[in-house]
């Protein structure tokens, strides 16, 4: 297949512009707040009985946040410099841990949990949706639709509590928290991997159930018009086999869902906050809740930045993928 280089370059430049915009907003937001984060942090440490902190430390904090008295554009370049060196400041609630270290610990767990469960959910959802759509107006279709709507409307935190209660608290079948057991050694060994899967099961189940409905309904509603399209009618008129017709319809119907897939992977780096904190899963979401509760500006800012990047990468990935899946889009880019 011909690789659409122009299309990819165009998408990369667009991606870069949006990325610069996002980090600029991230730079501007704390500076638009009354007072400044350094003072908030400083007073918090004082209130918490932090002995030995002096106004010198306030200055240090301000430097740490890039909140110097220097002109705004110089601050901006300092901020960019810090950013590209991976320096996101120091967390308050996990003082003196740098934000980047916390994110580096939390992000892999979140990515593992989110990507695996959304992928499973996407796979099951699309197939259920296809089944419902091809058996339109039958009892099976109705049952799948009702289930999907119910699940899509069900509050995530309620489901998380129910699942936690049934399987972990009363059932005692699964652990109530953590990402892996204490007794296993971190590394690529079988007990560790099993322990990770065991611990991820309940949060993943929750995410799968909650996100399933959207895929099912999306797929069902895409495949119905696809099955009635001119090209499907023509394929039938040419005596195509059933499986060929279904695959043509499916291939055309999955396109809109692909966008949703990448978007939700991106968004979910922060979007599984509720599931992660209920299951005490040490991902970004859990740290986010803690950071908000303790007004940990640097950490919140760091997570915000990370989410922005994740959403952008997700969109970027889907743009590129879409170019391969749908030749019509690719040509616009050429």
């Amino acid at each position: 297949m011909r690789i659409p280089i122009k299309y990819i370059i165009k998408k990369i430049s667009l991606f870069f512009v949006v990325f610069m915009g996002a980090i600029t907003v991230n730079f501007a937001l704390p500076r638009m707040m009354p007072g400044n984060p350094a003072q908030v942090v400083y007073s918090q440490i004082l209130r918490a009985g932090g002995s030995g902190v002096s106004p010198v430390y306030l200055n240090q904090l301000e430097v740490e946040y890039g909140l110097s008295k220097a002109p705004l554009y110089i601050q901006y370049f300092q901020y960019l410099d810090n950013l590209f060196h991976g320096n996101l400041g120091v967390s308050i609630s996990y003082f003196p841990e740098p934000v980047s270290t916390i994110l580096a610990q939390a992000l892999p767990w979140t990515l593992f949990l989110v990507i695996s469960s959304i992928t499973i959910s996407f796979f099951i959802g699309n197939h259920l949706g296809r089944y419902a759509g091809t058996n339109r107006n039958t009892g099976k279709d109705l049952a799948i639709d009702l289930f999907s709507m119910f699940m899509a409307a069900f509050p995530a935190f309620v489901l998380a509590f129910i699942i936690l209660d049934i399987f972990a608290v009363y059932g005692n079948l699964f652990p109530i928290g953590g990402a892996y057991g204490i007794s296993v050694n971190e590394g690529l060994n079988v007990p560790f991997i099993l322990s990770v899967l065991y611990h991820a099961f309940l949060p993943a189940l929750t995410i799968i159930l909650i996100s399933l409905g959207g895929w099912v309904l999306g797929m069902r509603n895409n495949i119905i018009p696809s099955l009635n399209s001119d090209f499907i009618n023509y394929s039938e008129n040419l005596g195509f086999k059933k499986y060929q017709i279904k695959s043509i319809a499916y291939r055309n119907a999955i396109l809109p869902n692909m966008t949703g897939f990448a978007m939700s992977i991106g968004l979910s780096t922060s979007g599984v906050i509720i599931e992660e904190s209920i299951f005490s899963y040490p991902g970004v979401g859990m740290y986010m809740i803690n950071a908000i509760n303790s007004l940990d500006y640097p950490l919140i800012q760091g997570i915000f930045l990370m989410v922005v990047i994740a959403v952008l990468i997700g969109n970027f990935a889907v743009d590129i993928l879409y170019g391969f899946l749908d030749p019509r889009i690719r040509q616009e880019g050429d």
């Binding site: 001119d230 009618n233 023509y234 008129n237």
Partner: peptide, 12 residues
């Protein structure tokens, strides 16, 4: 068919 313009699968 009528409207043979749309009778071909757009992604193949």
């Amino acid at each position: 068919p009528q409207a043979a313009m749309n009778a071909l699968n757009p992604v193949r």
